[in-house]
């Protein structure tokens, strides 16, 4: 057990626990806070996997921007959800069964897949190398994504407008 392994497993535990807590919180603000913790953990995992640039992006964009946006919206809407009910059991049990099957098969895969046995060691990708790769090999996807972001911006602006009197009825 070296440091790399210890770090990964403890971070993985942190991610799973905080995500589990986030999913089960009644209070939305708490849920978002736990999720931010989870995303910090993910960022650390990215760093462990040799992607410091992605780790930085994860912290800045996901934890820093997206989650704060969530928080902002939650506080703006001031939603109180004290009596949240779950689905009736009749509708839940197929989902539970499928989820169980999913987990079993996932475990089987993790145990039997030859690729799963490959060991990941510490590595490092320079952000400059990564940037050059992205803009050389996937420039079209970058352009498309930027266009998508522009569309999302316009769409969000349009949808987020307060409904006028005509559109309300």
């Amino acid at each position: 057990m070296n440091l790399f392994n210890i770090l990964f497993y403890s971070i993985a535990l942190l991610i799973v626990v905080s995500t589990g807590l986030a999913v089960t919180r009644r209070n939305l603000v708490h849920a978002v806070i736990y999720l931010i913790m989870s995303f910090f953990g993910s960022a650390f995992v990215f760093y462990l996997f040799g992607a410091p640039f992605l780790a930085a992006l994860m912290v800045i964009v996901y934890a820093g921007a997206i989650m704060i946006l969530f928080l902002f919206i939650i506080m703006m809407l001031r939603v109180e959800t004290p009596e949240e009910q779950l689905f009736p059991a009749r509708q839940m049990w197929p989902a539970v069964a499928v989820a169980a099957g999913y987990l079993v098969v996932g475990a089987l895969l993790a145990a039997h897949d030859p690729a799963a046995g490959a060991v990941l060691g510490p590595a490092q990708t320079e952000p400059a190398v990564f940037g050059a790769y992205v803009f050389r090999n996937t420039w079209l996807a970058v352009e498309v994504t930027s266009l998508l972001l522009l569309v999302a911006l316009i769409g969000a602006l349009f949808i987020g407008k307060r409904p006028t009197h005509e559109s309300e009825e």
């Binding site: 057990m1 070296n2 790399f4 392994n5 990964f8 497993y9 993985a12 991610i15 799973v16 996932g106 475990a107 895969l109 993790a110 145990a111 897949d113 690729a115 799963a116 046995g117 490959a118 060991v119 990941l120 060691g121 510490p122």
Partner: peptide, 12 residues
């Protein structure tokens, strides 16, 4: 041992 099995990451 050094490193993490790929399967564990997939499980995560």
């Amino acid at each position: 041992m050094a490193g993490i099995p790929f399967g564990h990451v997939l499980a995560l």
